[in-house]
């Protein structure tokens, strides 16, 4: 344990970056996912096509490729942003595609009559989505979205490859000094596992609280 205890401030700093990255990317991914889902289940063919194209694109490219492309490619074309901010945006865009897929399966699980009844009452498509379809769809996909959150947490470790000093990069740096990979990376792994465990607990509770009799 001593290599971790000796470098507690570095680990702590890395963990904070990982948590920050996870929270911000997840929030962004939810917004992206909602927007893409609205486009994909909506009545406008062009928007449906854009939504589908978006999901296909981001699901079929590795996150690491996207990160490298954004971090090293964007400055080439004159777009300069901080490393951390760029990483957050890339992860949000990437995971947003997965959230959109989960949400769409939730929307499809809701009986067609729910949206019809909402529209028959005079609600616009957006209102029926917001007040009737999505609240019900979200309840059915709490667990899949929890899984995406966990996957996103693990995926944030890829930013170590483009120079962001997150938990993984911090562990790597400490290991360069201490050369004790087993305690150092097991320690880092346990920290990731703790985040995932909390996420699992929260989704389990949410699912029970939101369950609707049908």
């Amino acid at each position: 344990m001593s290599p971790i205890l000796d470098h507690l401030p570095e680990f702590w700093q890395g963990l904070l970056v990982t948590l920050e990255l996870t929270a911000a990317s997840f929030a962004g991914a939810v917004v992206v996912g909602l927007a893409i889902t609205a486009m994909r289940v909506g009545p406008v063919p062009v928007l449906r096509a854009i939504g589908t194209g978006y999901v296909e694109t981001f699901q079929n490219l590795p996150l690491l490729v996207l990160l490298v492309l954004a971090v090293f490619g964007l400055p080439e074309i004159g777009i300069k942003a901080g490393l951390l901010a760029t990483s957050m945006v890339v992860i949000a865009l990437y995971e947003g595609a997965y959230i959109a897929e989960a949400l769409r399966s939730g929307v499809n699980a809701i009986a067609k009559g729910q949206g019809e009844a909402a529209r028959a009452l005079g609600l616009t498509f957006g209102q029926s989505l917001r007040h009737v379809v999505l609240p019900q769809a979200l309840r059915t996909v709490v667990q899949p979205i929890g899984n995406i959150f966990i996957a996103l947490t693990m995926n944030t470790s890829l930013v170590a490859a483009v120079g962001v000093v997150d938990l993984t990069a911090a562990a790597n740096r400490v290991n360069l000094v201490e050369a004790q990979p087993i305690p150092i990376f097991v320690g880092a792994g346990l920290a990731y596992a703790a985040v995932a465990a909390v996420a699992g607990l929260v989704t389990g509770r949410l699912e029970r609280r939101l369950a609707v009799a049908r």
């Binding site: 909402a118 309840r139 009799a213």
Partner: peptide, 25 residues
């Protein structure tokens, strides 16, 4: 055909379905 004008018309036309379609939540 669609959009807000259609929503306004539907607001004035009540509909009752075979399968009730009450909002379950």
């Amino acid at each position: 055909a669609e959009g807000r004008a259609l929503a306004r018309l539907r607001a004035d036309v009540g509909m009752v379905f075979q399968s009730f379609n009450l909002f379950q939540h």
